[in-house]
Design a binder for these strands. Structure first.
Lengths: 236, 236
DNA sequence: CTCTCTACGAGAGCAATGTTCTCTATTTCT
DNA sequence: AGAAATAGAGAACATTGCTCTCGTAGAGAG
């Protein structure tokens, strides 16, 4: 079992698995999650449909695999975009990377973050971990910025002032469950950032801005930059 | 043809059409746009599948009809929520109505604003009008608030200062095509509001906030209220 | 090197889907 | 009242996800 990875069979299996995944993504791009057809994938790869079931027990499992893959690829891109010494630059970097990946991979983005498919509940244990990587990474960066005194005090004060008790309590329980010990305003600012910027990106990718803005690049970059410029002050 | 609306056949047609629509929405709620099955609808209504084709030429046309219906119902709700003498209250009202309808009708909301379905391009002429009603209504309200001097000057100045040339130009061309004559900052503020609040609502409806906030009501209402409180100042 | 044994792929088959066609009954119009 | 348009039923076709059976070809033991 351990040495099997060098066997001929195991190698073929890996190759076919990879071929199936790429064909599936190709199909996903062409026809969306709805029209993802196992038979079409099998035709692309050049095998019988029934052979697919040696790799994925069902169509839903294949979708789950694609979702996890999308989350991971997105998170990888975002983390790479956050590789800066300066926290401010890192925060800017992750959000531009966030958007860039989404724009470049609309089908995968829609699959991961779009309309949930009723009847198919994505198995939480599989997807949740991958799906929260970005959130945790952003929060870590924000915590670092806070520790370094880079967060704009005015923004934090204003945020604290308008924090409703319900929100504050929910943020507290969330952070206590995840071991993060941060002032509630910082958590609130983190959530605000996430909601604003993910909302922006998803609207752009789903085409909701097209009637107003055929190419949303200027607007999106402007919003990301100004949002972060207002929150984290330059290194002195 | 004119008097046909009172004929027996025409009445039956209307009734069956209504029955089909409600059954379709029921199915949509249960299985989503993906699993919307004509045969299931026919079974619910109690007719043969082929009879459905006397009412809708294809499954996609049925979907388009449902999308238009969803847009219209959403817009009706939002416009009703904006029925206030005070512009500030009206603006608050439309956004709370916007969210309330979305939360109450997640399937329709997802169909109208969610992941686009490749291969099926929603016929623009049918959906665009219904889809832009809310945007135009919100813009009219904002224009009224501007005319009455209710928009916070600081917010407008700050928005104007961080307006990128690309965005400004796109907003100008859009407004010139729609006959609205407003300062660019006001248009930018309108777009910001839309992006922020629609992004918030769609994240809540699609379940993206659930890991952080099982019930997003406090957070959502807080964001809507504070966002508007910062933008439009109270009547003096 | 040979002999099991297990894994893997092919193919047929099942129920369900969207869509089309034909046929019959019924309403509508002249 | 007779002719014409219309609405629904039912069968049929291609396609889908999925299951089952069957032969073959690699893997491990002697």
């Amino acid at each position: 079992m351990t040495t099997a990875s060098t066997g001929l069979r195991a190698r073929r299996r890996q190759e076919l698995l990879a071929a199936i995944r790429t064909a599936a993504i190709e199909e996903l791009r062409r026809s969306g999650a709805t029209g993802l057809s196992l038979r079409a994938i099998a035709r692309d790869v050049g095998i019988a449909v029934s052979a697919l079931y040696r790799y994925f027990p069902s169509r839903d499992e294949l979708l789950t695999d694609l979702i996890v893959h999308a989350f991971d690829e997105h998170a990888d891109t975002v983390e790479a975009g956050g590789a800066h010494d300066d926290v401010g630059e890192a925060l800017r970097g992750i959000w531009h990377a966030y958007r860039a990946w989404a724009v470049a991979h609309p089908a995968e983005f829609g699959l991961a973050y779009g309309t949930p498919v009723p009847g198919y509940a994505a198995p939480p244990q599989d997807t949740v971990h991958a799906g929260t990587r970005i959130g945790h990474f952003a929060l870590e960066l924000l915590a670092r910025a806070h520790a370094e005194g880079r967060l704009d005090p005015d923004s934090l004060h204003r945020r604290a002032a308008r924090l409703s008790p319900g929100t504050a309590q929910q943020l507290e329980t969330w952070s206590s469950r995840h071991g993060q010990r941060l002032p509630t305003e910082v958590l609130a600012v983190w959530l605000d950032l996430f909601v604003h910027l993910h909302g922006l990106v998803s609207m752009e990718v789903f085409g909701l801005l097209r009637p107003i803005t055929p190419d949303a690049t200027p607007y999106a970059t402007e919003v990301i930059d100004t949002e972060l410029a207002a929150l984290v002050r330059p290194r002195r």
